[in-house]
Design a protein around this nucleic acid. Structure first.
Lengths: 331, 331
DNA sequence: CATTGACATGCATACGTATGCATGCGAGCG
DNA sequence: CGCTCGCATGCATACGTATGCATGTCAATG
């Protein structure tokens, strides 16, 4: 059915190996033969079969990107530049959407169809990165990290970002402070929370238990957690949200309750996704260079593929405060 | 380096073909041997090599989804249920992000590494679907369609949705009506525009040239087009946006200009993505059953793979109006 | 006890490509 | 004119798995 290099060889009047060499510009094929083979291949519409090539070369030219939360715009924003960078370096990108407990996913990563894997949504106790490490598959942990694993990582300064916000709150005179935090098995949540609490403490402030809400990284959760915070017990005057999606959910919750932001309450996010800059949102948040982080991760995985035994590299992207319209002084 | 079925065979004391059969529960392998092989495979951590299997069976168990605009939340919302449905039916999903003129992309689709392809962002004159058709690769056109091609399609009733909006505008008494439309080489744009103009005409209304803005499906374009419409010449009192992302951009533009929605102007979108229901957005729009459409597309591609020569099927998803907070009567 | 048949397994090979090695050819040199 | 060398190409094979066919074993049957 499909056209093979044997078909091309027959048409060009050469052997199959010569076709293989000619199409990849092997220097030991005469220019004349190369042209003849090229023409035959073109006229037949020949495309090198991936399974055959991959079986023969024991490499695939494909890198997997594992992401669980495509619905969170942070991830598409991360994946697009990753794809572009890898593509420019001659690698194809396979997006593996990790939808929870699908055992097929792990197999997809280790069945030999990928040269390397970039994990973006690992949890602290994830088995997948450990299994990949065990099998020696080149891997980069992007964004979220896993404990006690010798692997390349590429992260943002979550603790530093949280500290920026803690100091902003302190500068604005807030004393009753709340936080809406992502699930704690994401390293970003853990590091952000620790960084936040630590920085508050340095300013003589604290984050009491009942001012913390923990849940998924969704706007729905942001909204419901915010409503809870504003209706149960004492009302906070400033709310730190672990990412922009949660923060936007909190803004939705405020709208529903008729609470004015920033006059009644300050809401701040983290990531600076594109939506945060929309006029209808106008969220004060912490900026990270997402494309820059993606390019660094692309670089790391290619280095790792080239040299599987080099010591692990840890790249950390710096952060900066973006003051927009959702913060204000304590009243 | 990697474990092969030969290694398992050696450990289990059987031949390689027996390993192959045992692991796939071939009935002609004794239960005893199956257990022995399973144990050997498990202890070695054996995973079937994809290239080998694919080369031998001439099928891959993988379906490609081609999407260009992951940043538009419509597509992740479409891809997630597609992935789930295909996964439940035993197929893996490969997301191929089509980033414009990358010639590698086409090769990725036709190099034999996919059993079928679902195209979500084809343009009317796209070469890719035609090339796939020429090569007889099973294919479904989802969301956007291509002219003069015998292929399965799965679309929403774009013209019907646009007509719902036209009638809403007419019912509300609007006479000065504008439209912000996506690029015209997307079939959804063309059909939506035609349906809109036609339905307006039936109500004795029209859409003048200078009330139309055409551009990409982004919120940035929605905002800039809206600002133009409100500052050049006569001001429309109702603006039809070709999708929710553009509509939200228009809302941003309105905010920047200090224009009140819906008192000063009516803005309506199309798709009913999740963001449209957020309290901070609260967009009046047209609802489509996105997961339902995805499931239908999954069904179509699997049917097509099972029977490549059956006549093409055209699935159309119906639509309904969702009245929220961005429409109002003409003043 | 010989024959048949069901059943379990192994052998050989195919899938498509890439590569080490051998071969053949022509030119250059002594 | 014969030898050597370089270059272009073909041959054989490897990559890992799946499958048609042949083979072997054992129990049941006449």
């Amino acid at each position: 059915m499909a056209i093979t290099s044997h078909d091309v060889a027959r048409l060009a009047g050469v052997s199959q190996p010569t076709v293989s060499r000619a199409l990849r510009d092997h220097p030991r094929v005469s220019l004349e033969t190369r042209a003849k083979v090229r023409e035959a291949a073109k006229s037949l519409g020949y495309v090198t079969n991936h399974a055959g090539r991959s079986l023969s070369t024991l490499s695939t030219g494909r890198i997997g990107i594992v992401s669980a939360e495509l619905g969170n715009p942070f991830y598409p924003a991360l994946i697009a530049p990753l794809h572009d960078e890898l593509s420019a370096r001659g690698y194809r990108t396979i997006l593996v959407t990790d939808r929870g407990s699908d055992p097929l996913e792990l197999e997809t990563l280790i069945d030999g169809s990928l040269d390397g894997v970039i994990l973006t949504t690992s949890e602290i106790d994830s088995e997948i990165p450990r299994e990949l490490a065990r099998r020696g598959l080149p891997m980069v942990l992007l964004n979220r990290v896993v404990d006690d694993l010798k692997a390349d990582t590429c992260t943002t300064d979550d603790a530093g970002g949280a500290a920026l916000i803690a100091n902003l709150f302190a500068d604005l005179g807030h004393t009753c402070i709340a936080a809406i935090i992502g699930h704690p098995n994401a390293s970003t949540s853990r590091d952000g929370q620790l960084g936040f609490v630590h920085a508050l403490a340095e300013r003589g402030l604290e984050l009491p238990e009942d001012m913390i809400r923990i849940g998924p990284f969704t706007s729905q959760f942001g909204a419901s957690a915010f409503r809870e915070l504003m209706t149960d017990g004492e009302r906070p005057t400033a709310v730190y949200c672990m990412n922009d999606v949660i923060a936007i959910g909190a803004l939705n919750g405020a709208k529903e309750l008729g609470i004015d932001v920033p006059n009644d309450v300050t809401i701040v996010g983290l990531d600076d996704i594109e939506m945060a800059s929309w006029s209808t949102i106008n969220l004060t948040t912490v900026h990270t260079d997402i494309p820059g982080m993606a390019r660094a991760a692309a670089d790391l995985i290619l280095k790792r593929i080239a040299n599987p035994t080099a010591p692990p590299i840890h790249h950390q992207e710096s952060v900066s405060l973006v003051l927009r319209g959702t913060h204000g002084p304590a009243h």
